[in-house]
Computed example of a mutant assay.
Amino acid sequence: MTAADWIEHFPPLAALGQEHRDAVLASAHPVRLPAEMRVFDPGSPCSQFLLVVDGCVRVQMIADTGRELVLYRVRRGETCVLTTSCLFGGEVYPAEGIVETETRAVAIPLARFLALIAASEGFRRFVFAGFGQRLAALLATVQDTVFHNLDGRLARALIARAGGGPVALTHQALAAEIGTAREVVSRHLKQFEKAGLVRLARGRIEIADPDRLALRAARTE
């Protein structure tokens, strides 16, 4: 993967002046991350700034009880807010990152990242814009998990993952998406099925009544 292959996915970087654009290109090295690879773990140090060119990395937290909560996903043209935070604060990761689909990315080592932050206003704006946008989305996830009705959260998760076909997620994976226990998701899905909203089958969930499910998704209380 050459510089031309990746930098156009990040327009603010592609638009930098020649000196700083060349500095970014010289600092970044391409990486290929296979599906299911663990990119970072809770407590691990952060040593590089990762820009996702193609693919998807899921960032999630796991409680002592084993319950999972998906915080967000990093996709094409995006960066990871936890990585940025850890780089600036010199902190370790508080969550884990798992590659969902094979991912191409470029990595900028910590020392070069900090040098670019100091030298380039355009690079600083790019980093802080991505940080602000992702932080806002993360806060929305927390708000949804803490304050909103579970039926609505489950319905929204099903609609978001359906894509016009069946949802190929386990009950455990859905529980991680909305921040609850697998048993709770299974119970609510049974209620959805009884109400005629979905049809349950092994390894997939079919949406039987998308209009009524959308009404359920609109509920927040």
Rank of each mutant, 00 (worst) to 15 (best):
L215S: 08
V92F: 10
S44F: 06
L200A: 09
V106F: 01
Q18W: 08
D5Y: 14
Q133T: 04
P30I: 01
L197Q: 02
G196Y: 08
R124F: 02
N149T: 09
D5V: 13
S120C: 13
V70K: 01
R76P: 00
A111D: 12
F128N: 00
I98H: 09
A28F: 03
D22K: 03
E183K: 15
V127R: 04
A173K: 11
L87D: 06
P210F: 02
I207R: 03
E183I: 12
E221H: 13
F40L: 08
E8Q: 13
A157F: 00
L138W: 12
R161C: 08
A111T: 13
A111V: 11
G43K: 06
A175D: 07
F10S: 04
R156M: 01
V99D: 06
D22F: 02
L16H: 05
Y72W: 00
D144R: 06
Q48H: 14
G77R: 07
G196M: 10
D144C: 09
S120L: 07
A173C: 00
F10H: 02
L200H: 10
A35Q: 12
P12C: 13
P109M: 00
H9I: 05
L150I: 15
E102D: 12
L135H: 10
G196S: 13
R153K: 15
L51Q: 05
H148T: 12
P166I: 07
A176F: 05
F126R: 02
Q172A: 14
L71E: 04
L138C: 10
D151A: 00
H171S: 11
P210D: 00
P94D: 09
A173F: 00
E91Y: 13
V57C: 03
T103C: 09
E78F: 08
T220N: 09
L25C: 14
R212C: 05
A3Y: 08
V57D: 03
R21D: 11
S120M: 06
F126Y: 11
A111L: 12
V198W: 10
F123Q: 02
R104E: 15
R124M: 07
C56R: 11
L169N: 02
P34Q: 04
F126Q: 02
P34S: 11
L150H: 07
L158W: 05
C80Q: 03
I62F: 04
A168S: 11
Y93W: 10
R75V: 06
E96L: 14
E183L: 08
G164K: 03
S27M: 05
S27C: 08
V39Q: 07
T145P: 08
D209A: 15
D5Q: 15
G164M: 07
G164Q: 07
L71V: 13
E177H: 11
A105L: 05
G165I: 01
V24Q: 07
D151T: 01
A119N: 09
G77Y: 11
L154I: 02
L50G: 01
R67P: 04
T220K: 15
G203H: 09
V167D: 01
A105Q: 05
I117C: 01
R216I: 09
G90C: 13
V92A: 12
S120F: 04
G132E: 09
L135V: 11
I98P: 00
G152Q: 04
I178Y: 02
P11W: 09
A160G: 05
R32C: 08
V99P: 03
V184W: 00
A162T: 03
E96M: 15
D64R: 15
L169S: 07
G203I: 05
T103S: 09
A175E: 04
I205V: 15
